[in-house]
Each structure stands twice: as structure tokens, then as C-alpha cells.
Design a protein around this nucleic acid. Structure first.
Lengths: 206, 206
DNA sequence: ATCCTGAATATTCAAGATAATATTCAGGAT
DNA sequence: ATCCTGAATATTATCTTGAATATTCAGGAT
């Protein structure tokens, strides 16, 4: 992490640079030592400023954390979006990949960056609206995917919103970091395959 | 297990009576005041004996808890069994009812007997094998149900065990007390209906 | 011998004291 | 005027220690 703002072309107001620098420093600390164990003073020192000055750019520590958590969730959302919007591929394939992608991401974060998860959790139960917003965005992406699948004649769905909720519910196990300790990634992947299979084709004889 | 295992009919051996009496007293206390807040001395007094004497029948407090937790889980299992084994009904209906039954039970326990859940949790993460055993029994009941459904020509299933695991995974949201705070029972029931629908018929056009 | 207890010991819990840390603010530098 | 800081205050975490509780055990009652 650079201690000083790069002096070159800044597309935005200098204030934004400072905000970005603070977020970068905080993010670095949070992911290395955890949210609770990094102090405002440390973040400030990394940015060559006083702790008090941080409060000119963020309401408080939780606000810094929230911004980082949002970025984290957005990144996750982007991963999903990248799959769902590959319009040339069959919707079934994309649904499959979305589920596996979610699992891979959940597992990776759990295994490789536990401190970030700690932070996201801390933030999420202090700021319900953040997770709500994220869930809504995710919901919409899946709705889009299902609608696309229906239009192409791949899917037969009575109520797209209900079905999206059902799918989201059915893949809970793959979305919650807490569960990741239950199995190896490999086991989870096989399980996810089975669930996708189940979702796509159901049990009834045809 | 017990230091002296009765080789014959359980109810007749005095040791079993004592064990049962202890479990009853402990169960009463645990569900009323919680596992952590009831003392061995209190349980003992309820049984008109010394605390030390409890250790002749159970290894320790956790062992008492484990026995009660087992009974709790067995009761849950029995509920499921009662549904799955109604051979005269279609397997699809039974599968539906099992899921709703599980949800109802999870929710009820969470809402009306939080202390029991606290105990079961405490015990389960100290005694993994208990929950493993329970999961296995549950798995077997669902396997039976699916096999029955296949035989009747209701279901078309490639691998019954994999599918059972998939179903179990897909209803995670309804099995874990932790999630119960997310929605009302009513909302959960509708969601469960959708998930069952999804499991039974799948998404693909037929 | 078998069953049980009171007292001894080990472990866990919780209230209060202490130290860190978050947050605010009056005022100084540019 | 705007930006920033050091010091003051409020909040939160950590540590300490006495008390509560779990567990053990030597020995008494039946």
C-alpha cells in the first residue's frame, strides 16, 4: 500500500482520493489482522494523518467497514453477473455455473480470507440494509436469468419471483460461510452439482 | 455409556429408574432455566441425592445433556418417520409433508423452547458423533421414501443417495434454528412450498 | 461388598477495576 | 475559510480476582 496518493491524473475530487486511500489502508489492515484488532490510529498512521482526520471522511469505523463490505459484496455480485449475462449460453448452464460460482466464492473466502468474513459479518448485523440491498440485487440477477430461460423455451416456470426465492433458499448451504467447515470443497462441489441437477429436472417421472 | 448396563428389560432394573429419574429432573430444569444455568446440585436435590451420586450414573453434566439431546433428536426423527412411512399415501405428498414437518418443528423449537435448542447446540458441538448419527438416520428415512417413490413409478431418480443428500442440502434453511429469525413462520411455509415444488418438478420444460 | 455422602479440589463464571480504543472538539496551521 | 491536529471524553475491550460450580475421592452407612 502506498503511503501517498499518486500525484497523477485524478479523475475525481481530491477528497475521493483520500477516501480511497483510507479504504485501501483499512482494507489492508482488516484483512491482515481483522476488523476488531485494527485501530483507527493505525489506519491513520498508514495514511500519514491523525485519527481525528479520518472522521472528516467517514462517519466512524463502522462506516469504513461498511464501505469495504459493500465493495466485497459487489465483487461477489459481479461474479454472478458475469455468468448470468452470458446470453449466448443456455440458461440451464448459466444457472449451474452461478451456483458453483457462489460456492467457490464462499469457500474461498472462508478458507483464504477468514478475517474479511469476520468483518463482513460484523458489518452486516450492524447494517441490515446493506445485506438486504445485496440480496435484492442477487435476486434480480437470478430473476433475469430465469426470465431469459423461459423466453428461450428452456424453462417452464409459473412464478419467476417465487422460484427465484426457492432457488436462493435451496442453495443456502453454499452461500453461508459458517457451513464451509462441514465438508471439503470437493464434497461441496459434488453436492452442489446434485442440487443443481435436482433444481433443473426435479424428481417426478416425465 | 452406563457403568452397569442392564442385560435385560430396562424398566425393571433399578439403575435404569434412577437414570431415568435424573434425566427427567435435568430435562425439566434445562428446558425451564437453560443448560448452563442449572447446577448439578439442583438436579441432585430434585432427585433427593447428592451431587456426587449423579456421577455414578453419568460421566458428567455433558453426558446428561447428551442423553437428553439424543432423545430430542430421536423425537424429531420419529415425526419424520411417521410421515415417510404412511405407505398408503403418494411419495410426493409424503416428501412435501416431511419438509413442512421439519420446518414446523425447527420453528416451534426456536420460538417456544429456545433453551432446549441452546442445550442441543451446546451438546452437538461437543459431541459431533451424536449429530452425525442423527443425520444418518434422517438420511436413511429419506432414502427409503425415495426408493418407495421410485418403485411406485412416481419418481425418476438416478442415484437415490446423492439425491437424498441434495434434498437435505436444499432444505438446510428449514432445518437450522439460526435462520428462523429471518422470516415469519408463514413466510417460511410459503417458501418451503416453493422449494418442494422445485424439487418435485424442476425447472425444465417437459 | 455396594451404595452413597460431605468435604476437597479443579474449573468456570462474572463483577469490578484497568487499560485501549473510538469519537469529539477547541483551536492552530496553511 | 479550509484543513488538520493534539488533547479531552466516551465507549469498549481486557484483565483480575472472588465466588459459583463441576468433579473427584476418602470414607461412612447399609
Amino acid at each position: 500500500m502506498s503511503a501517498h496518493t499518486p500525484p497523477y491524473i485524478s479523475t475525481s475530487h481530491p477528497t475521493c482520493d483520500v477516501r480511497a486511500r483510507i479504504l485501501a489502508a483499512a482494507g489492508e489492515r482488516f484483512s491482515q489482522f481483522g476488523y476488531n484488532k485494527t485501530t483507527m490510529a493505525e489506519i491513520a498512521k498508514d495514511c500519514d494523518m491523525s485519527a481525528a482526520n479520518l472522521y472528516r471522511f467517514f462517519k466512524n469505523k463502522l462506516d469504513i467497514g461498511s464501505n469495504l463490505a459493500c465493495a466485497c459484496l459487489d465483487e461477489k455480485l459481479l461474479l454472478i453477473k458475469n455468468v448470468t449475462q452470458q446470453r449466448q449460453r443456455p440458461a440451464t448452464e448459466r444457472l449451474h455455473d452461478v451456483v458453483l460460482q457462489i460456492l467457490a466464492h464462499t469457500y474461498d473466502r472462508w478458507a483464504n480470507d477468514p478475517r474479511i468474513n469476520e468483518m463482513v459479518n460484523a458489518i452486516c448485523d450492524a447494517r441490515l440494509e446493506i445485506v438486504d440491498q445485496h440480496e435484492l440485487s442477487k435476486h434480480n440477477l437470478i430473476v433475469e436469468l430465469l426470465e431469459d430461460g423461459v423466453q428461450r423455451g428452456e424453462f417452464s416456470i409459473a412464478d419467476v419471483h417465487d422460484t427465484t426465492k426457492a432457488i436462493t433458499a435451496a442453495i443456502t448451504l453454499f452461500s453461508v460461510p459458517l457451513f464451509m467447515s462441514l465438508h471439503s470443497l470437493d464434497t461441496f462441489e459434488k453436492l452442489a452439482e446434485s442440487v443443481v441437477q435436482l433444481i433443473l429436472t426435479g424428481l417426478e417421472k416425465r
